[in-house]
Design a protein around this nucleic acid. Structure first.
Lengths: 278, 278
DNA sequence: AAATGACCAAATAATTGTATTTGGTCAAAC
DNA sequence: GTTTGACCAAATACAATTATTTGGTCATTT
């Protein structure tokens, strides 16, 4: 009883079809949240446009919030993946990484809204996202990466690690936020903005002189490793958000060993939209 | 029987006493707006704490808005004056200027709120302030100043004027905004922040190599001139806000010739809180 | 004149009640 | 087993009232 193309009835049942449907739903959700904002984007709406019944959506996610968490996570994975892909083709410097990050960020309204805490788009989610430290939702391993760069002589030694982070976060934030509220005459194309950002960010924290000979390779490697780790972490979280059969299962703390106790976060609801340090 | 047997003397009648009282009122207003925000700060409150009757306040300003405009303008003058004063003691470079600006900005919550459009403090004034281009309320003559620096070889030649402005505004904005929302571990003392900001800003737009020999003096002079102009402009506006006898008189467009028609702004109410380009 | 504070229209907040929408469930249909 | 959509409690929006506060004025006092 394999090939039963019975009547039109139960198309998606295997995992692959399930996933496909999940993505279709997220696509719609993404469109709607950008057009109307989180508050005005209803499950009914999404279901209708996605061509499924409301109940079906709850076959994937337990709550509305979880759905949007998945959406944000997917976007994050896509962005980081793209950065990872493109950074492999360049010199793999910090400046390179910043430029790619900016470039990918600028073309993803949802990511921008999420990073900046745009309440116009995130609605009542704004609080949740920002509560967890706003600008501090650095990708996993970022500080480790900076540590490596410092050791390789690629970072200014007259700044503490915290200062490196603050400087980079400030530049990133500023360049993402300011241009939008500038008068007409100052509008710049996104690609140019990304360059300026990368420029400003790297100049702010990068070591002055030329990098110690022979370290270029190691720097590039560190960058790649960081990008890889960031993508993997994001991917793991995403999978938990839409992979499993039962919507509730995942998110169980300490699945694949390795964790221990995250010194950082205050437990909180395991299913919240927290995307920060892990 | 009247309540307080306050022999309502008539102390202030000469200009000097008037001004003194105006400042006392503004002091109170400043305290209150920082403590409760613009929306919840009432004229009654201010009057009571300042030890005057409500009517007296209207002897100085025609409306509540005008009072706060005066407050903001006064703060601005104080800040710019301080910058002017201190910049004369240093090398007078762009970096120097940025550092001082940051330093003075960081110790003035009202200025920060005003610049960043903090709705928590500015309440319904937020809109008005931001409407006029937010980060674009550059002091008078800023672009001219940048032009001079560029001509003197102190600015990167591979950026357009607009790009210089965007970069500086972004850095300033970012460094003023981000540190406040960073997790505990990343807190930095204001003075250090000012340094980092100055560093990042100048590195972002300043020319790479050493400045052409002999230009240092001219650069310093340009910086001084710019600071002077900024202070003067701010002062002129302030005087109009609390100097004259009759609250209404000033603000009349085109007082001291020179104006004509400002190509920029859409007229609007002459008494609004606009502090931008003039 | 200079300053006051009782006074008032208008804005703002608090209250109450009703209508509509929406997240989430689940028995029935496939 | 999978999907659906009618169903419901809870949330949200809307409307109508009433209560309170507040910006601004001005006759009176000093």
């Amino acid at each position: 009883m394999e090939p039963q193309a019975r009547r039109a009835g139960r198309p998606p049942q295997d995992a692959s079809r399930r996933l496909e449907r999940a993505h279709r739903i997220l696509d719609i959700a993404g469109d709607l949240i950008l057009r109307w904002g989180y508050d005005k984007t209803t499950i009914d709406d999404i279901a209708r446009r996605a061509g499924v019944a409301k109940g079906t959506i709850y076959l994937h996610w337990r709550t509305r919030e979880e759905l949007f968490a998945a959406l944000l996570r997917r976007e994050r994975v896509e962005m980081l993946s793209q950065v990872r892909l493109r950074v492999a083709e360049g010199p793999g410097t910090l400046r390179d990484l910043l430029g790619l990050l900016a470039s990918e960020l600028l073309r993803r309204p949802l990511m921008r809204a999420s990073l900046l805490g745009d309440s116009k788009v995130l609605g009542k989610l704004t609080r949740l996202k920002r509560s967890s430290g706003a600008a501090a939702d650095l990708p996993t391993g970022f500080e480790t990466y900076l540590g490596a760069l410092l050791r390789l002589g690629a970072l200014r030694a007259d700044l503490t690690p915290a200062e490196h982070v603050v400087a980079l976060a400030s530049v990133l934030y500023g360049f993402l936020l300011v241009p939008q509220m500038m008068p007409e005459g100052y509008a710049l194309p996104d690609e140019r903005l990304a360059e300026l950002l990368a420029d400003a960010g790297s100049r702010a924290v990068a070591a002055g002189g030329p990098v110690p000979a022979g370290n270029a390779r190691a720097i590039s490697r560190a960058t790649l490793e960081f990008a890889d780790l960031a993508v993997e972490t994001a991917q793991r979280k995403l999978r938990a958000s839409l992979g499993s059969e039962e919507p509730g299962k995942p998110e169980k703390s300490g699945t694949s060993g390795a964790s221990g106790k995250s010194v950082t976060g205050p437990e909180k609801s395991a299913t919240s939209l927290e995307e920060n340090a892990t």
